[in-house]
Design a protein around this nucleic acid. Structure first.
Length: 214
DNA sequence: GCGACAG
DNA sequence: ATCTTGTCGC
């Protein structure tokens, strides 16, 4: 991936890659889904990028990879991908198998320039991708309390994702399309991946893997 | 000056 | 993201 030095350069990269995002078709059939997450060493820019690949039927882990690295870009809202994507791409390269979809820890189209981490990783790998954020970027009304309830996630007056209740009475997650996917199939998959907990099993296993090594 | 601000 | 105790609930 390209590695800009300044915020202005990073924005330019996003503007150039943005037209490559495809969201006009539903997610192709999915057998395996990858979870991606990054854990940091306390008080430093050292990190562990972790990827786990799960069988979506059994939710068992069929492949995984973790790599150590550094955050070579500061954390700036809207430029999050430049901090974590380089290491995550190295982790993906180390996998034995190629997952059918990437489930990313962050936003996809729900982004000031419509190019969040999930779009970024999707375009650079060519793989379908979905963004699942723990906090919203944009505004939303609380979805119904029951599991599976959704409400639109709005940014700049545009529907860019959905608040999705994966567990009754628990704060929703925020789903947006990354690449080669539509919002309906993205939410459907996230719900399948999160039968018991708030977050999908993909991000839970990746989070654990990275945390254990940091 | 004030509020917003993925991880 | 990470720093942090106890507490309520399944």
């Amino acid at each position: 991936m390209e590695r800009p030095t300044t915020a202005a350069e990073a924005v330019a990269v996003q503007e150039r890659l943005r037209p490559l995002v495809r969201t006009d078709r539903p997610l192709p059939p999915v057998r395996t889904a990858a979870g991606l997450d990054v854990a940091y060493f306390p008080g430093s820019d050292r990190l562990v990028a972790a990827v786990t690949v799960l069988d979506v039927e059994t939710l068992s882990t069929v492949d995984s990879r973790a790599v150590r690295g550094t955050a070579d870009f500061p954390y700036l809202p809207g430029l999050f991908a430049f901090r974590e994507a380089p290491s995550l791409l190295r982790a993906l390269d180390g996998l034995t198998t190629s997952p059918d979809v990437l489930v990313c820890d962050g936003q996809g189209l729900a982004h000031p320039r419509r190019f969040g981490l999930a779009c970024h990783l999707g375009v650079l790998t060519g793989l379908p991708s979905i963004g699942v954020g723990k906090t919203a970027l944009g505004r939303y009304d609380p979805p119904g309390e029951e599991r599976g309830a959704t409400s639109p996630l709005l940014l700049d007056g545009e529907v860019l994702g959905r608040a999705l209740r994966t567990r009754r009475g628990v704060k929703p997650v925020f789903v947006s399309v990354g690449h080669r996917c539509d919002l309906d199939s993205a939410c459907e998959l996230v719900l399948r991946l999160a039968p018991h907990h708030r977050l999908p099993e993909t991000t839970r296993t990746a989070d654990r893997l990275g945390r254990d090594l940091s």
